[in-house]
Nucleic acid binder design. Structure first.
Lengths: 349, 349
DNA sequence: CTGAAAGCGCTTACAG
DNA sequence: CTGAAAGCGCTTACAG
């Protein structure tokens, strides 16, 4: 005996209306030619019965599950909320559901997560790879977000340009000596951001980079970054490569009595949730998650439509670089020059 | 003509091995009695062909999709990463996939999100309701996380006890005047936490509550909370009802030259990602997301197993209260007494 | 121990 | 415009 769902199905609607299931199906999907009168009657009756089409039946028949996968790395990554939200929104708009898989742990955990999704029949997946991971080709279309390491199927924020925007901003405020604060020198993202900052420095400016992970290996985790000393050495701007580092810098400076932003500016990246909440609020550069998600999902959907599922096809012809947006929340600096665009502190391009 | 998937199916394996699909199915699932020898051969061949069972076929036949839904509220809620991770982990362990749905927007958006999940055939769902929302019964088993408003199917952290732990901690440090900093007085969670703090005060201690949202309506968003004034009035402890408020309090105090924790202590709730990173690190109270997720998923799975899907059955016999855990990171206070448990600053119960 | 057959709910050519 | 029928891939009694 086969298992049955409690809800009504096409057959029940058909029987109770004295028509065929084909006609009910056509009426509900609007595809076949059904007289408007009958279609209306069928739709009404279906709604009355609380008919919910069976995804399983539809998927089996059409070969399309209507579901995409989202593979995420890093325990409790603070970017996760915005990203997942944007992906879910874009996928829903395209008529897809989103199955999540957490690839915490090592690369093998990532592979397992990918396999679980394939087993659940996803038609494609968005992968945010673990640091320095090459995504092993899954047996379905894949879009990769945020790492430049696998050219040809990647959409990423333009971290380099974001770095340049930070540099311009700090230059306009009159800063000369900049301390770049990063976490891990192996991270492509962080290197892009740092490179962007350096490339955007103007004459007379210079920057040094402090890698927190390295410092913590030497001095122990949670150690002081010695930023107050840096202020005494003449640094006036602290450009962190993520808001989390920026927050650490800001609180350490404040704890040690440095007036931010009057005596030193602190900037970050990513516009995480606390950036506007702290005092003073953080100047930062935000990824356009909505656009990134739209590109990832639309190229995935495109690939699915044209080549079918389970082909391991990679998506997008080249790396898509989505511009980052500077959000100025601290606009004073050591020399407090008149802003060139006096109205809102926005930078001229 | 019906759509086909590219991958091999049971029939292909059966044909190429000269056996029946039933036998292949039995061998792969280990259910029917198949000779170990043949079973081994079938498994080997299946692996060789890269056979991935069709969820659609299985779901249609068994009436079970193997998927649960997770409905989340609030744009970019910082608790989301930990929660989603814990839910995904518990669901995976129970053999389920997790489909996410974001109920951002109003209550109707939440209803829509729930409906989308039902349409995708989830067997049950975990809902984190929007503030002050009653979950309208979906047509499948539901477990609710973190609101006390719908008794009978809820698992929640013991916010009240968490509040008491904060109060004990502050009492032990010798604080007398405590400012509770909350966001929204309508929130059940925040009220539980605040109530817990008040109930844990000892003789000679007193507390006042500051609601940030209300203050911002009067003075504009991002306004100063005037905490330095509070210090002058004699407040020495600032007990925020979430780490986000704690962070705001900490940075404002430090900006205004108040030495934390020497002159004032700041505590939060939730152990969000930045809590250990700021200087000084935040003392906070953490939800046990792993346990909460396990309870939610296991009661969901139990309900599904015993009563089948699509019955709108509610889960768990009463509100499950999962203990919160105090994490002490600031252990000095105005009078810096000797801790009663000298080794680790943990509180005696 | 193994196989033939039914049927889950749906969609889609095709016939009428 | 409407219906009869096939078949997507699987699992499960049942027969041999």
């Amino acid at each position: 005996m086969a298992q049955t769902r409690p809800g009504p199905n096409l057959s029940r609607i058909a029987t109770s209306l004295g028509v065929s299931v084909a006609t009910v199906s056509n009426a509900l999907s609007g595809k076949g030619r059904v007289s408007e009168q009958l279609a209306e009657k069928i739709r009404g009756h279906a709604a009355e019965l609380g008919y919910v089409p069976s995804q399983a039946g539809r998927a089996l028949r059409t070969g399309r599950s209507g579901v995409l996968g989202l593979v995420l790395p890093d325990i409790a990554n603070p970017l996760f909320p915005k990203l997942a939200q944007a992906i879910e929104f874009a996928a829903t708009a395209a008529g897809y559901g989103v199955l999540i898989a957490d690839s915490r742990g090592d690369v093998s955990a990532q592979t397992e997560a990918i396999n679980r999704l394939v087993e659940r029949g996803v038609e494609g997946m968005v992968i945010v790879p673990r640091r320095a991971t090459r995504v092993s080709a899954a047996s379905c279309p894949v879009a990769v977000i945020d790492t430049a390491s696998t050219p040809g199927n990647t959409v990423a924020a333009d971290h380099w340009q974001g770095g340049r925007d930070i540099a311009s901003h700090l230059a306009d405020l009159g800063h000369q000596r900049i301390l770049i604060i990063g976490n891990n020198p192996e991270s492509n993202v962080q290197n892009d951001r740092a490179g962007g900052i350096r490339s955007g420095l103007r004459d007379g400016m210079n920057a040094t980079t402090l890698w927190v992970e390295k410092l913590e290996r030497e001095r122990g985790s949670g150690c002081s970054l010695g930023l107050a000393d840096k202020v005494r050495e003449g640094y006036t701007a602290f450009a962190a490569l993520s808001d989390l580092q920026a927050l650490r810098a800001l609180t350490e400076l404040q704890r040690d009595g440095v007036d931010v932003p009057a005596a030193a500016s602190v900037t970050g990246f990513d516009d995480l949730i606390w950036s506007p909440v702290v005092t003073p609020a953080l100047t930062t550069v935000a990824m356009d998650m909505v656009t990134i998600a739209e590109i990832a999902i639309s190229s995935l959907v495109e690939t699915i439509r044209t080549s079918g599922t389970r082909e391991g096809k990679l998506v997008a012809s080249d790396i898509d670089r989505v511009p980052m947006k500077l959000i100025v929340r601290q606009s004073s600096g050591p020399s407090k020059p008149m802003p060139k665009t006096p109205t809102d502190g926005e930078l001229p391009k």
